[in-house]
C-alpha cells in the first residue's frame, strides 16, 4: 500500500462520517426545502408541479384580497420581539455573570448550576408554568390589574408581555454561560489601570471590561437571538395569537393549514434573515472590538 493511498484512506475514515452527517442532515433537507418552496399546491392543498413562485407571492402578502400586510407584520414582530428579548437577556445576564465570577471559587459551580438547571426541563412544561403564574386571578395578575397594566378580570397571559418573559427566561442561561467564561478570564490589571488613570466607571466599562468580554457577549447574542427568532413553542403557548412570530407561521403551514410550499418559503426567508443577522452581528462585533476580529 502506497503512502498516498494510506493517507487518503485515513482522511476518508476521519472526514467521511462528519461529511456524511452534514450531507444527510443539513444539505439534503435544505435542498428538499428549497425545492418545496418553488412548488405550487393542488386542489387539496398538497404540493404539486408546476414549479412556481406562488408561495413567495403569498408570503409577500399577495392573494385573493389583493395585497395585505399580515405576513409582513409577523416578520417585523419577530424581529422586534427577538431584539427586545435579546437586549433584556443581556441586561440581566451581564451583572449576573459578573456577580458569579467574583464569588469564592467553591460557590461558582453551584451558582452556575442554578442558572442552568431550569433549562433541563422541557420548554413546554416551563411555558405552562408561566401560564399558571400569569392566568387571571393569580397574585401576579391581580397586582397587574391593580397597577392598571391589564384590564380587570384578565390575566397577564396570553399577551406579548408573557411571550417576552417566556423568551427571556428560556434563553437566559445561553447568555450567562459565555459571559461568565469571559468574566472568568477578565484581566483585572486592565481595569485597575483604567481606574488609576481616573477613568469614569462608564469609561472603565467601555474601554477595559467590554472589549475583554466582547467575545462572550457576541457568542451569547448569537445563541440567544437566533433560536429566539425561530421560536415556536413559547409564542404558541403564551401568546394566544397576539404575538405570532414567523416560526409559528411556518409551523402552521406544515400542520393545520397544510400549505407546505408556503411553509418552506417562510423557512427559507428565516434562514436568509438569520444569515443577515449573523453578518450584522459580525460587523457590530468588529466595530465594538476596535477592528479586532471577534470570532462568532
Amino acid at each position: 500500500m502506497t503512502r498516498l493511498r494510506r493517507d487518503s484512506l485515513h482522511l476518508l475514515g476521519t472526514v467521511a462520517p462528519g461529511a456524511l452527517c452534514i450531507l444527510v442532515f443539513l444539505v439534503a433537507p435544505s435542498i428538499y426545502l428549497m425545492g418545496m418552496a418553488f412548488l405550487s399546491t393542488d386542489a387539496t392543498g398538497l404540493p404539486a408541479l408546476p414549479l412556481s413562485v406562488q408561495a413567495f407571492r403569498e408570503l409577500a402578502g399577495f392573494g385573493f384580497l389583493g395585497w395585505s400586510p399580515g405576513n409582513l407584520y409577523t416578520l417585523l414582530r419577530s424581529l422586534w420581539q427577538t431584539l427586545l428579548a435579546t437586549v433584556l437577556v443581556i441586561l440581566i445576564a451581564y451583572p449576573a455573570a459578573y456577580y458569579i465570577s467574583i464569588r469564592p471559587a467553591r460557590w461558582r459551580p453551584v451558582l452556575l448550576l442554578a442558572v442552568v438547571v431550569p433549562s433541563w426541563t422541557n420548554q413546554v412544561i416551563r411555558s405552562v408554568g408561566w401560564m399558571n403564574l400569569f392566568a387571571p386571578g393569580t397574585p401576579i395578575s391581580d397586582l397587574a390589574v391593580l397597577l392598571g397594566i391589564t384590564e380587570p378580570r384578565m390575566g397577564l397571559f396570553p399577551s406579548q408581555f408573557a411571550v417576552i418573559v417566556g423568551l427571556v427566561y428560556n434563553f437566559l442561561p445561553f447568555m450567562v454561560l459565555p459571559l461568565y467564561a469571559a468574566f472568568e478570564r477578565l484581566d483585572h490589571a486592565q481595569v485597575e489601570a483604567a481606574r488609576d488613570l481616573f477613568a469614569s466607571p462608564l469609561a472603565v466599562f467601555r474601554h477595559a471590561v467590554l472589549p475583554q468580554t466582547l467575545p462572550g457577549l457576541m457568542a451569547g447574542t448569537v445563541l440567544v437571538a437566533i433560536p429566539a427568532f425561530g421560536m415556536y413553542v413559547v409564542t404558541e403557548l403564551l401568546g394566544g395569537g397576539k404575538a405570532t412570530m414567523i416560526g409559528n407561521l411556518v409551523a402552521q403551514q406544515f400542520a393545520a393549514a397544510s400549505n407546505w410550499p408556503l411553509g418552506a418559503a417562510g423557512a427559507l426567508i428565516m434562514i436568509l434573515a438569520t444569515l443577515l443577522g449573523l453578518w450584522v452581528l459580525r460587523r457590530l462585533g468588529r466595530r465594538l472590538g476596535g477592528d479586532r476580529e471577534v470570532v462568532i
Binding site: 399546491t41 385573493f64 399580515g70 395569537g241
Partner: peptide, 19 residues
C-alpha cells in the same frame, strides 16, 4: 372546501392569525 375556495379560506385565516 377544495381548490380556490380552500386557498381563499386559508389566506383569510392566515391573515386573521398574523395581524
Amino acid at each position: 372546501l377544495m381548490g380556490d375556495d380552500l386557498q381563499f379560506l386559508q389566506q383569510l385565516w392566515r391573515e386573521v392569525q398574523a395581524r
